[in-house]
Simulated scan of single mutants.
Amino acid sequence: MIVNPTVETTSLSTSQLRRIYSMRQVRWSDGTAIAVFVLPSQHPVHQRFSKDVLRLFPYQLDRIWNKLTFSGLGLRPILVNSEQELLKKIASVPGAIGYVENKEGVDNVVVIKVND
């Protein structure tokens, strides 16, 4: 997991990540809005993140996001097309969170720990 340097959180639990990615938690503990970035559902990194970290299938996330969008109760996460684009967005948007497969060479973002 990576976040914008403005985010003060150093670790998140799996349940916190599920709340963030199901768009139920929309603010960090300091009140800053959370900007959630994701890769396309078919992307291998998104599929591994969904299954291994969130313990949800990608189609389950899509259903949650579609329900929020179509009911008018919320918005989908912001979709980016590549890990490079995701890194640029996380680095430039305050309160942003996202995921990448490889932590090596990650600059201008903060890597946070995921606790079970």
Rank of each mutant, 00 (worst) to 15 (best):
S50L: 12
S13G: 09
A33P: 00
G74K: 02
E8R: 13
A91R: 08
I64A: 05
L39W: 02
I2Y: 00
M1W: 06
S13V: 12
R27H: 02
I34T: 01
V3N: 01
R19D: 02
V53W: 08
E104L: 15
R19M: 07
K51M: 06
L87C: 09
T14V: 14
I64W: 05
L79N: 00
N108Y: 08
E83R: 12
S41H: 06
P77T: 12
Q42N: 10
S92Y: 09
R48K: 08
Q25E: 11
G98H: 12
T10M: 13
V38E: 07
E101W: 15
V7E: 00
G105V: 12
V93A: 07
F70K: 15
S82I: 12
V45I: 12
D30I: 08
I34F: 01
E101N: 10
K89D: 02
T9P: 00
A91Y: 01
V38N: 03
G72Q: 14
G95W: 02
V100H: 03
D107A: 15
R48F: 02
I64R: 00
T9M: 12
D62G: 08
I112R: 04
L39R: 07
I34K: 04
I64L: 05
F37L: 12
L61F: 03
S15I: 08
V45E: 00
L56H: 01
S15A: 09
I64G: 01
Q25M: 13
G95I: 11
L79D: 02
P77C: 08
K51A: 08
E83P: 04
V110D: 11
T69R: 15
N81P: 04
L68Q: 03
L79R: 10
S82A: 09
G31Q: 13
I2H: 03
K51F: 01
V26M: 05
S13Q: 11
N81Q: 11
R19Y: 00
V38F: 02
N66Q: 13
P58M: 14
L68F: 14
V111C: 05
P58I: 14
S41T: 10
L87Q: 01
M1N: 04
S92F: 07
P40M: 06
D62P: 03
K51G: 05
F37I: 13
M1S: 05
A35K: 14
Q16E: 10
N66Y: 11
V36F: 00
E83I: 15
L17N: 00
V7T: 07
Q16Y: 04
S29G: 01
P94S: 03
P5R: 13
K113S: 01
E101P: 04
R19I: 03
V26W: 04
R24F: 08
H46G: 04
M1A: 07
I2W: 03
Q84M: 07
S41I: 05
Y21D: 01
N66T: 14
K103D: 08
V53S: 05
V114A: 07
Q25S: 09
K89V: 12
K113Q: 03
L73A: 13
S11L: 07
N102A: 10
G98T: 14
I20W: 05
T32C: 02
V110N: 14
R63C: 06
